[in-house]
Amino acid sequence: MIEIKEATKVYSNGTVGLNKINTTINQGDFVVIVGRSGAGKSTLLRAINRLHDITDGEIVINGKSLTKANGKQLREMRRDIGMIFQNFNLIKRNTVLKNVLSGRVAYHSTMRTLLGLWPKADVDLAHDALNRVGIPDKAYVRADELSGGQQQRVSIARALAQEAKIILADEPVASLDPLTTRQVMDDLRRINQELGITMIVNLHFIDIAREYATRIIGLRDGELVFDGPVEDATDEMFTQIYEREIKKDELLGV
């Protein structure tokens, strides 16, 4: 369970990124955060694993305060939160397997990970993760030899190998074509349903958001303007979140 209490982010130049966000996300939710660009979607997502620090308020994950955690505590909390990025953020020159195994570093001593002495259980876990995203045969291929969709699946496998309980995905399909978009979103949904991993996804395609989310959070200028089950997110609601009619490029339409 993620409890976000009065989370506020004010940048050093005075811009308000998040304004007193209050919400609770339950284990197993598939949450999609929507809003115009600059509404604070990415800031909110990155506050949940503290890639960005909030300036006021508190975030509590499964009873432990993320905001107050430091050093080792913070690294252990991050270990339980996987992250998927728009640009995949893989080490391009390394093999797919090594990229997936890099999700395991926080479980072992520094020396062991530096020498690459992964326990057999970890290697099995990595292969399982690749199997789950449908690319078991790519384990020993260099990451930059894969297509965009395949690279995004490697990054999903990395989050799986991490044995994360929560996965944050920041515009995971923004650099993919419509067909691969569906495949990657299907992967995320399957993982959410089969493994009960909480999904928090930023999306700018409204139709995709409606199709996959169980719950929608709408942000406007850093404020939470909608938070409810997907059935309640009507066209009028989206128009309010976006402060205008929905445009064509906000629909994937496939």
Partner: peptide
């Protein structure tokens, strides 16, 4: 590329890792 660095921070790696 800062991307992979961000990814390593997110998985909970320490500075040396």
């Amino acid at each position: 590329d800062p991307g992979p660095l961000e990814a390593m921070t997110a998985v909970g790696a320490n500075k040396i890792q």
